[in-house]
């Protein structure tokens, strides 16, 4: 891969629409004029985003730019104060039932895994299907084993999270989220707490998942991952979406000076 910074932009183009997905279907996630404040601090400013079913979106940006806050708003781990977020035709408001409906359809993977340490891997995976979806234990366990198989750790099913490596824990976390059969998966820097040799095993799982048609929103600094699987890359800075483009364009032909600066820094190493 050549240095994307050497070629300068010739064809100024605004935000491109995602390709390869049906243009007429309504977006599965719709964010409209969304703002969020922490006290007086304006973290997210006027965010707008439409995500189509099956789209894979990578969000990147410098530390503190509000990436985590943004995707955490999508399942209401954080509440926004202005604008609209509509997920799978349900608007996120203060209504607990609406929030629960959305959370059932949205899986989330955290930087620090957040597995439940008092439950085995299998129990972690079955907890929500059994208690939220009311699936019988047998069936929930069968599904869980299927997903553990898919993330390649079926043999660890009866261990506790504390007995697994970081990479294994993160794969369990992915399986746990998938067991709810979500329509959308959110990833918040899933590999940044991992040692280099474990990053690949987690990325492999995510790439496989991306190939299966899952709608994914992924905050990550893994630019290789973005290039391989993303339909769109979103660059955030200071609480704003600065640039939004398909990965090829994003990396070879960034439009905004802030994006160019960020890419220069991140691609140096």
């Amino acid at each position: 891969m050549g240095n994307p910074m050497t070629e300068q932009s010739q064809t100024p183009e605004t935000v491109s629409s995602p390709q390869g997905v049906a243009g007429d279907s309504s977006p599965i996630i719709k964010v409209e004029g969304m703002h969020k404040w922490y006290g007086d601090f304006h973290v997210l400013r006027d965010l707008n985003l439409d995500v189509k079913q099956g789209e894979r979106i990578v969000i990147c940006g410098p530390s503190g730019s509000g990436k985590s806050t943004f995707i955490r708003c999508i399942n209401r781990l954080e509440e926004h104060q202005q604008g609209k977020i509509i997920v799978d035709n349900v608007e996120l408001t203060d209504d607990i039932r609406q929030i629960d409906t959305v959370r059932r359809e949205v899986g989330m993977v955290f930087q620090h895994f957040n597995l439940f340490p008092h439950l085995t891997v299998l129990e972690n995976c079955c907890l929500s299907p059994m208690w939220v979806r009311k699936i019988p234990r047998k069936e929930a366990e069968a599904t869980a084993m299927e997903y553990l198989e898919r993330v390649k750790i079926p043999d660890q099913a009866h261990k506790f999270p504390g007995q697994l490596s970081g990479g294994q824990q993160q794969r369990v976390a992915i399986a746990r989220a998938l067991c709810m059969k979500p329509k959308i998966m959110l990833f918040d820097e899933p590999t940044s707490a991992l040692d280099p040799e474990m990053i690949k095993e987690v990325l492999d799982v995510m790439i496989e998942l991306a190939g299966s048609g899952m709608t994914m929103l992924c905050v990550t600094h893994e630019m290789g991952f973005a290039k391989t699987v993303a339909d769109r890359v979103i660059f955030m800075d200071a609480g704003e979406i600065v640039e939004e483009a398909p990965p090829h364009e994003f990396f070879t032909n960034p439009q905004e000076p802030r994006t160019q600066k960020f890419l220069k820094q991140i691609l140096q190493h």
Partner: peptide, 24 residues
């Protein structure tokens, strides 16, 4: 993170407390 993971999985308040937080 434990509270957030339980929330993200859609466990409501009582299930979150009863199944995840209180046992620990």
């Amino acid at each position: 993170g434990q509270y957030e993971a339980a929330d993200a999985l859609g466990l409501g308040y009582w299930k979150k407390m009863g199944l995840v937080i209180l046992p620990q």
